[in-house]
């Protein structure tokens, strides 16, 4: 196949593979925009987080914590803990990306998300062509990126017109609930989630709003101990 054909096929296949996922990504982005606009964070900074951070869960946590007046150092710490999972994705993709040009290896991690990772790893099982791999990931990741930016802006525009009495901030934990359910299907995962939640509640009075991070670390510890004890 010609280089250009491979490129076109890769981009198209990548974009196509994430299309069904947009059903979940777009409402998530809308919630982010709406809640940012309705909070003390504001729509402008809300849109900026999509561009600068581009990681939905971390962005929502950032908006939520900033709005509740948490110290900025703890906001940064919490968001980075939420994003530490990207290490795992980076390690898994690294052998595939090692043949890409240096420029791609620097740019493509910026658009690395749960979804782009999942569809790419799946496709990489059935292909060996580095050129196709590169453009498939590019097509998938940038489709998600563009949709995310548009959804955030749309959410901010909408959010400015929605009265606070509707309690739309509740949509944030609802989105997280959807993400939580699939990762607590194993016993260690379930224990990690429960311990994380219970400790975060118990430690909610911890200084500087460190309750979330405390809960998260204890939850990870509990999950590790469960797995070490032989649970699956």
């Amino acid at each position: 196949m010609q280089e250009q054909d491979t490129r076109r096929a890769g981009i198209t296949d990548g974009a196509r593979s994430v299309a069904p996922l947009l059903l979940a990504v777009v409402p998530f982005g809308l919630v982010l925009g709406v809640t940012a606009a309705a909070s003390t964070v504001g729509g402008g900074l809300g849109i900026a987080t999509s561009f600068i951070i581009f990681a939905g869960a971390a962005q929502l946590v950032t908006v939520q914590l900033m709005d509740s007046g948490t110290s900025l150092a703890v906001v940064v710490l919490t968001a980075l803990v939420v994003n530490v999972r990207h290490l795992m994705y980076s390690a898994a993709l690294a052998p595939h990306f090692s043949e890409f040009p240096r420029r791609s290896r620097l740019l493509l991690p910026y658009v690395l998300t749960d979804q782009a990772f999942a569809v790419s790893m799946l496709r990489y099982e059935t292909t060996t062509d580095p050129l196709y791999k590169r453009w498939f990931y590019t097509g998938a990741a940038f489709t998600l990126w563009g949709s995310w930016q548009v959804a955030t802006v749309a959410g901010v525009v909408l959010g400015a017109q929605i009265p606070a009495s509707l309690g739309l901030g509740f949509a944030i934990p609802l989105v997280f609930l959807v993400l939580l359910i699939p990762v607590v299907q194993t016993r260690p995962g379930l224990v990690a989630g429960i311990v994380g939640g219970v400790v975060a509640v118990a430690a909610s009075a911890a200084p500087f709003g460190l309750g979330l991070v405390t809960g998260a670390l204890m939850g990870v510890g509990a999950g590790v101990m469960m797995e070490r004890a032989g649970h699956r």
Binding site: V82, L180, G193, G196, G197, V213, T214, A216
Partner: peptide, 12 residues
């Protein structure tokens, strides 16, 4: 276990 622990600590 980062994902379940973090999400539990956010949601609950």
């Amino acid at each position: 276990y980062v994902a379940p622990a973090v999400l539990g600590a956010i949601v609950l």
